[in-house]
Write a protein that binds this DNA or RNA. Structure first.
Lengths: 213, 213
DNA sequence: CATAGTATGTGACAAAAGTCATAGATAACC
DNA sequence: GGTTATCTATGACTTTTGTCACATACTATG
């Protein structure tokens, strides 16, 4: 690992913390599509994203999944921290969207760094806070919104995160992530196309004007 | 406040921490039905429950609410901690179910105690962890389960938390908390009664045999 | 370019949940 | 006890979402 990677991705960390991380962690890389965590897996390390993009899903016993949020460079998986203390497993699945590089910091350092480095302490708290907020927004949408709004919100989130007006996903993939069915998504997208919000292509949705939810 | 209250509710706290809390916090009491937090409110204190019972809801702009979880004595509101760092508001509503007594610890002490007391550090992390898990379970239910299962789960949660086989709520109240409608809940309860799972009374549901979800 | 595989479009139908209207039941209160 | 509030029951209907069946369109690959 180059110092530069940590420097750029976590500029707020103290120098001593960066060195401490560098000394004690290892870099792992994941190909686009590869899973960083599987449901039922034990955590041995906290994952800090330094490059790429990760999608985090909730999964049930029947294999249904629900997309919850993205993890971007400079962020960390709260679950891997949360479960640290208790050495518990979690029904969470995380998948690399692009080729992704993460720092895997063994859980044993979590506690040590918390008291040793102010910036680490703030980073961990901010991680909890932001993931907590994401979950609340997710609950809002499933509990209070109908599928058309949820789909539109889903597309907006993609657009914002990927900074790209073309969402390169099939209707089936979107349906899976929203725990719906392909036909429903197809129909809703068609409506959105008629309203001039999107343009539909094979394996791609071109976003024209969303965000007026 | 008596030392005994903290002693009994938070036995895991170090003596010095208990004293520090006692010196710097104030006790607040809420009547059954009273709101501890309103949507949009700023947090100035972290709330530790020492007696009673609190229900925590997610609320949207339209006034719809969704029940998320209970807070029992010995637990704390993660949101009031989470928002501490950022001084943000949150779309959360908390209501006392029984008469409730809480320790209101000014947010300024959060950080100080974290580095000063190991037991406080663990308490805060455990609070995040358990509330995070609760939210994930909530997401599971809304995303993957139909209303009949969610209703049954809701009743089980009541039963377990209140240690009481009589749920003293009207169908309308339950419908509100599950973001459904009274008629739907009435019909589902009727079905459950026919299956011998519950017995229905006015303003009360007697639980006979649930838990076999 | 032929064809197999995948993606999308669409009608018809089923199921679940929400809405409306109305009636009966129970409790509360003067 | 009679009136009023609230709570519950229920049929009929609408809307939303999910399912099934099948047609069509695009793409990759030989």
């Amino acid at each position: 690992m180059s110092n530069t990677a940590i420097d750029q991705t976590f500029p707020e960390f103290e120098e001593a913390l960066k060195e401490d991380i560098e000394k004690n962690s290892e870099i792992r890389t994941f190909r686009a599509g590869e899973q960083l965590m599987r449901t039922g897996q034990y955590f041995r390390s906290t994952m800090l994203i330094i490059d790429g993009l990760v999608k985090v899903y909730r999964e049930d016993d029947a294999g249904n999944e629900y997309f919850m949020y993205y993890l971007k460079p400079g962020q960390a998986c709260a679950l891997s921290m949360v479960c640290a203390a208790k050495r518990e497993t979690s029904e969470i699945m995380a998948k690399a969207v692009k080729d992704t590089e993460v720092i895997a910091l063994p859980l044993s350092y979590m506690d040590e760094f918390m008291s040793k480095y102010k910036s680490w302490y703030h980073f961990v708290l901010e991680t909890y806070r932001s993931r907590f907020e994401e979950l609340l927004v997710t609950i809002d949408h499933i509990a209070f919104r109908a599928m058309d709004e949820r789909l539109e919100f889903y597309l907006i989130k993609h657009q914002q995160t990927l900074k790209n007006n073309i969402v390169q996903l099939s209707h089936q993939e979107i349906a899976d992530e929203l725990n719906s069915s392909r036909e429903v998504i197809s129909r809703l997208l068609k409506k959105m196309e008629q309203m001039g919000k999107v343009r539909l292509h094979r394996n791609a949705i071109e976003i024209i004007s969303l965000g007026s939810i």
